[in-house]
Amino acid sequence: MSVLVDENTRVVVQGITGGEGKFHTEQMMDYGTNVVAGAVPGRGGQEVAGVPVYDTVHEAAREEDANASVVFVPPAFAGDAVFEALDSPVDLVVAITEGIPTQDMSRVYRRLQETDTHLVGPNCPGVITPGVAKLGILPGNIFSEGDVGLVSRSGTLTYQVVDNLTERGIGQTTAIGIGGDPIIGTDFIGALEQFEADTDTEAVVMCGEIGGEDEEEAARYISQYMDTPVVGFIAGRTAPPGKRMGHAGAIVSGSGTGTAESKINALEDASVPVGDTPEEVADYVEDII
């Protein structure tokens, strides 16, 4: 099994006529993803890579039975694009765009709470179920089919951990890059809930980083509600307080939470082994399964 993305996922690409949208549409299709439509205002009636383009997501979903959207729209317009997708019949929205204004995401987040739609991102690499479909920019060649779920704030760290797992012959059910912005859709707990409910996911790798309290909150959730074993990794151990390291959400305020140490301690208190390196993460997973 898998979570969020499977063989029944039918994708509409928002921003398909742009350079990034077109390139990654072709990459997704080459991987086997069922991209059925594009959506760009004013471009209805065109085709990109053999895919019909509609003016709106709602029209694309209606005409092509699309149930998921991937957003490759410039930051100034991406908030409205996500909002449009949330008001359409699609069940999953994956927002790849980096740099969406926080004020726009605040508006999107409020709307998200009124829907049953899953939003992944923004500023994320996407979601992949190996051998079935990928929605986003993930390099499909490093993933393999298996029974380990992965959720990560960092795209690059996702690739490193997955490469180590695949080299050990440890495949993945689904990998979810949730993104590192301060306001995102699916967080660690949302992803962990998905994996806990998936009977084929035998272990989960959770890759976090400094900043915020999401990892500490996830540790409490793991301790109280998860039977599926989890292995952790926290990036940014040497980051000085007050400095943003990479992602907009990766900043330590000096309040005693949000540091690498506080996150590692919270996870270890929840009986989650935390690797010092991505390779050690693979060691822990190998021991579990």
Rank of each mutant, 00 (worst) to 15 (best):
D187K: 13
G246S: 01
A282V: 13
I96E: 03
P74V: 06
G185D: 12
P139Q: 12
Q103W: 13
K22R: 15
A49H: 07
T33R: 00
A37M: 01
V73C: 11
Q27M: 10
T156Y: 02
E64H: 00
F77P: 00
K134W: 09
T102G: 05
V120S: 11
V35A: 10
T166V: 05
E215Y: 07
N265T: 14
Y159W: 08
T17H: 03
T115W: 05
T56V: 08
Q194V: 07
N67Q: 12
G146T: 02
S154H: 01
E280D: 11
N8P: 01
P241E: 14
A260C: 12
V148D: 04
V252P: 00
K263G: 02
M1V: 12
A235P: 05
I264N: 06
G19T: 13
G180K: 10
T228Q: 09
D198Y: 00
T9Q: 09
G180R: 10
T174Y: 04
T158Q: 01
I222N: 02
V108A: 08
Q160W: 01
E98N: 11
Y109D: 15
M245W: 15
A78S: 12
P101F: 06
G50L: 10
D65W: 01
I96N: 05
E209Q: 06
G32N: 10
V70A: 14
S253F: 14
V148F: 05
V285D: 04
E98Y: 11
G171M: 07
N123Q: 10
D287S: 14
V71R: 05
A197Q: 12
T238P: 00
G79E: 04
D276E: 14
E213L: 09
G131I: 10
E261T: 15
A248L: 06
G21D: 10
S253D: 14
P101R: 13
T257K: 13
I234R: 09
V36I: 06
A248Y: 02
L112F: 11
S2R: 13
D227W: 04
P182I: 09
E26Y: 05
P52A: 14
V148G: 02
A175R: 01
Q113S: 14
R220E: 15
A270S: 14
D65S: 12
E64L: 00
E217W: 11
I189G: 05
I184H: 06
G256L: 04
E209A: 04
I222K: 01
I251C: 09
V35W: 03
E47R: 13
A260V: 08
A219L: 08
